[in-house]
Every structure is written in C-alpha cells, then in structure tokens.
Design a protein around this nucleic acid. Structure first.
Lengths: 334, 334
DNA sequence: CTCTACCGGTGTATCGATTCACTGAAACGA
DNA sequence: TCGTTTCAGTGAATCGATACACCGGTAGAG
C-alpha cells in the first residue's frame, strides 16, 4: 500500500495556527477576521496544500458544483461534439460535468437521469435521442433540468433549448424538390419509430405539401447501423433518388454503403444529413447537411441552468434555427 | 420558485417507522435486524422514493464512487471516442465519470487534474496530449492515477496503458518506404514540439534506418489547425510525396487541404493517419491509419484503477500493439 | 460618563449516513 | 436455576466545513 497521505483538513490548520476551526473557515474566505490572521492562515494552508473538501461543503451547503450531462448516445458524433461544447461551457462557470450516456437506449434515460440526480448533481442537462419514456415529473421537480432538443414527458423544466426541426426538414425537402427529386427515403432513428415525433410528422406533412414521395425508414442510431439499411434501400428496383438522413452519423454510413455498391453521389443518388458535424465537409463527397449551432446550443442550455440555480427565473426557452449547408452530396436528379 | 421538494432522508424513514436512525441504516442494507423490520423499512423507503445521499456517504466512507477522466483535447475525435469507451466501461463497474478537458493546453492538465482530485474523485484517468509539465508526484500519491498513452513527470502510477508508438511508426514508415516514398512530411501535435517525445524520436530514428527524408512539422491538434499547414507544405516546389499525420483529426484537415489544392490522393500525395477513428474508412479516400484498440485500452485502464481501488496490486502496465490498416489514401509514388 | 456598535474571535449545532459500544430481553446449555 | 450467548435495536461519535449565537473588549456617539 503506497498509502495515500490523507488530505489536510481545516482542523489541522486550526491546530497549526492555534485558532479555532471557525476562525480558519472565515479566514480562508477572507471574512470577519483580521488581515494578519488571514495571512497567517493562508500561509499555513498553502504550506499544507489545503483545499476545502467539496464533499463536506456539499453536505453542509446543499450544492455540489456539479452538473449531470445525459446524452442519448455518445456513439453519435453530433452528441460527442455537443458534450464537448457543454463541458467547456460549464467549466467557464466553474461547474464540473458528470457524464452519462444512455448508449442509444431511450428506456435507459430516465434510469440514468435518476442515478445522476441521486449523485446530487445541482442540475441536469438532458439531450435525449428519442421520445424518452417514463414520468419525469418527480425527478425534474427535485433537480433543475434543461432539455436540449427533446421532450421529457411530465417534466417541469428549468429551461429548454428546442431545435426548429420543422424548418430544418422544410429546407431540406425544398432543396431536394428544387433539384427535381421525387422519391426520397428518410432514415430516422430506430428509437423514434413512434410516428408522432415532430420531426417525422414534419417530414410527412411537408412531403405531402410539396407532392413528394417520402418513405420513412427507421434506422439504428450509429455508423454501422445505417450501412446495411442503405444497401437494402438502394438495391430496390424503384430506388429513391435521394436519401435524407436524420443525423450525419447515419449519412456517413449511407455514404459508405453507396461506395460499396459503386453508386455515385450525387450522380446516382443524393444524400443529405441533419447535424452538420465538423467532419461533414471532409467526407466524400462533402455532405449537404443542416447546421444547428452547437455553441449557441451549449451556451443557451448552460445559461438557463446557471440562471435557474442563481434563483433568476427569466426566459427559459429558446429555439435554435436551422441553416441548410449545401455541399456536393446533393445534385439534380439524372 | 417551484420549490424543489427536499429529498427524503434516513431520518424521515426513522420517524415514519418509529425506529432509530441506526436501525434504518442497517435495515436498508439488510443487516442485523429482523426480516419483518427490513420489510417495513423497505416499504416506507420505496414509498418515499428514498435513496441514500451519496454526499453524506462519501463524507463518512471516504469514497465518492466517481472517477475523474482528464483528456488532453476533446476536440480530437480519437479522444472523444476514448471518452465514450471509458465512460461506458466505468459504468459497468458502477462508477460515475467526471469529465475534464484540457482543450489542447498541456499546461492546463496538472491544474485540471488537481481540481478533479480536489473534487474527491476516487481515481484519475489521464490521457494527456503532450509532455505534461509540472510535478505530478503529490497529486498521484494522494489519488490513484492511471495514464493512457502518456507520461506524467514524477507520477506514481496505479496503472499505465502505453501505446507502442515505435512499432506503429515503424509500420507506417515501412509501408511508405515499400511504396517508394522518399520525402515524407510528418505532422505532429504542436504541443509536442519538444524533440524528445518518443513518437517523434521513433520517427527520426526509423527514418534514418530506412534512408527516408522525414521532416517533422508541428501542428495544431485539431481539424482546422492542420489545413493551412497542409496547404503550406504541399505548395512547396519539393513537395513531399507522402504526409504522415500523428492523429486522424490532423489527417482529415490535410485531406481537406488536398481537395482545395486539387491534388489527388494518393495520386499526387499519400496520406496516413494514426488513430484509425471509426470515420476514417468513410472519408475520401478512406484513410490508411494505425489502429489501437480503444476498447482494450479503456478496459485495461479502468481495470487497473478498479483493481487498485480494491486493494489488489498486481500487474499494472500494458502495452497496446498497433495494427496498420491500409486503405486507399496511400499508393505507390508516381 | 454611559450606552451602543462593532471587532475579532470562540463554542456548538448542523448537513445525512455509518459504525462502534452498549443494553434489555429472550434463548439456551449445564 | 444460573451464567452466557444471541438477537434486535438504541445512543452517540464521526466525517469536514459552515453558520448562528454569543462574548469580552474597545471606540465613538450622545
């Protein structure tokens, strides 16, 4: 046993300086005590390498300074990027991030969130991937929660960052329509097979409006999940002329499938993504996609949470607008 | 104020059941008390939705059940993937993950690690990006630490997952040599400009052995950092025939640069990466790279830490062997 | 020359769970 | 029937930091 030398406590400083524990506590935060004492205490604290035990502090003060970040699937590149952005943003507020990953299983989300809350996080940021089940009322009543692009049944939210999926879908479909596409396959997440998800509904409605033939295909939320599916869809006699993927990760798999089949993109088939991941301009061909500013998303979400924790109850909903980025994976129908 | 209803405590259960706090504590873990009491306590606990406060438990018991994961740069795709794998692995052991990101600044690493340790994590996993500065002796003596592909000056480690960079470099250089390449640019991380990093040293030594002309170019550890650099390198009159990137993220930027310059890969120039990120087979052209099994890495690192926490002091060093994955971004020199 | 305000501190309860030392009662062997 | 276990449970201390109540001494206001 290398024996971890126990961390110094406030009590040790008290003994060392001959002061009371209370005095040291005040001195360390520069309150109520004489400058001379403050200096003396500081010196000893520095020498011992003291820092207040956050566990004890949390027990007393009720706050842990830690936020739970629950993402639906860290296998998804967009959510990875989001996690990065959120973590960075939280850090600027002096908050730590506990990360949890439902790994693609929406049924896990409530359980994991509950476990995070049990860990006594001060707040929760939830970026679900599907229609999360269960009743979030109790959890969210106890722990301030901000959602990012998702709905939590029964939740009472401290904030909400919504994505205007409807507009995003509209931009994509109009883009494809303008290029002459008529038969379009839409790959959505498998978990989202429930037909009432707003994104899928938007697809159906707007396709009808534009007179497009849109087939919704549920798809695993991962790189490897979409490739076989793409192979199947593209092998049909009445192959769609465009594939609209509801995440860039899915689109990457589809691109791979096209390469395997020897199909040219966009010559034989056009591909569109939905996250505009940083890499999407580097794949081949560069992917047409819909961009949702991750930085603004992270900033807004963290902002809501921090405001809520500070007791300020202001505006707590924002809608992130999409912006279609046209690259080389879409072209006119042959 | 929506007023978060405070979480139930063991004391409330005690009052509700008419038992002492002690009895409830024992009952909840099924010890020492009669079966009837256990059942009664359980019933009340369930009804109240009780779960033990981990903060209080940590204060008493010394353990928080949380591990700190410090990565050098979450902007790097490989480290994102690693973070995912580690988080998942920790979860299988019932441990939570606190995530911290040095964001490419090696000078930040020690500070961040200290902050994590101050948060009272039970252990630390560190995947540094560069030659981390500072003295890690004190920190690592107090908090069990496992490194992943990196060295920490002065550290006393609970475990170490090393990458056999030398072999990896060797495989790449021999591969390029066999294809007839002579002039090779090697893009390494900017932070790693110190010439004694083992990877860079390996490059120099093995290039000499093979009679290759290798130029080491320091490069920002990100997608956007490598593109301009690639443009500069590729614009020279005596352009190298191959570029060896010490991370896939860097290689992606280089690929992008090549496309901008209208250079064909591998016709005009061959590109090699060094992480084999899942996306590397999807970029265009699919990237030749060196694979280090992330799953094995994560499993080993977490395993070392868990064993150490359990008091078992066994083997605590493993070397991950590289495997060169040849794809289409490398070809014979024209 | 009082009365009050303030200064620089100290003692103690508190946060929630755990655990050691103890106790009254029942059970049990001799 | 007496002495000893075992059972089921209680009280109090503990972990480390914080905050409230309090206290003697001094300085300034009236």
């Amino acid at each position: 046993m290398a024996a971890s030398p126990k961390r110094p406590t406030i009590k040790q400083i008290a003994e060392e300086t001959g002061l009371s524990v209370t005095a040291v506590s005040y001195a360390l935060r520069g309150e109520r005590v004489s400058p001379a004492t403050i200096e003396r205490v500081q010196a000893v604290a520095d020498e011992l390498g003291y820092s207040a035990d956050p566990v004890a502090r949390a027990l007393r003060g009720g706050r842990t300074g830690t936020i739970g970040l629950l993402v639906g699937s860290l296998a998804d590149f967009w959510q990875q990027t989001l996690a990065h952005a959120v973590q960075r943003e939280l850090r600027t507020h002096g908050l730590h991030t506990i990360l949890a990953d439902a790994d693609g299983d929406p049924a896990e989300e409530l359980t994991l969130a509950a476990r995070l809350a049990a860990q006594r996080v001060d707040g929760l940021l939830v970026a679900p991937i599907g229609p999360a089940g269960g009743d979030w009322a109790q959890l969210t009543a106890r722990t301030p929660t901000v959602t990012i692009a998702g709905r939590l049944p029964g939740a009472e939210l401290a904030g909400e960052v919504a994505f205007d999926q409807t507009s995003g879908v509209g931009e994509v479909l109009r883009h494809l329509h303008a290029l002459g596409h008529q038969r379009i396959a839409v790959l959505s997440w498998a978990v989202a097979s429930s037909p009432d998800r707003p994104t899928e509904r938007a697809v159906r409605e707007q396709a009808a409006t534009l007179g497009l033939e849109c087939e919704l295909v549920p798809c695993a939320y991962s790189l490897d999940g979409s490739r076989p599916l793409a192979l199947e869809v593209l092998d049909r006699p009445d192959r769609p002329t465009a594939i609209f993927c509801l995440s860039d990760s899915i689109a990457y798999g589809v691109l791979h499938g096209c390469r395997e089949l020897g199909l040219s993109v966009p010559g034989d088939v056009s591909i569109v993504g939905f996250d505009d991941h940083p890499l999407s301009r580097l794949v081949s061909p560069p992917l047409t996609s819909v961009n949702w500013s991750i930085d603004r998303t992270a900033r807004a979400a963290v902002g809501f949470l921090v405001d809520h924790l500070a007791g300020e109850r202001g505006e707590h909903r924002v809608v992130i607008a999409p912006s279609l980025v046209v690259r080389e994976s879409t072209g006119p129908v042959a």
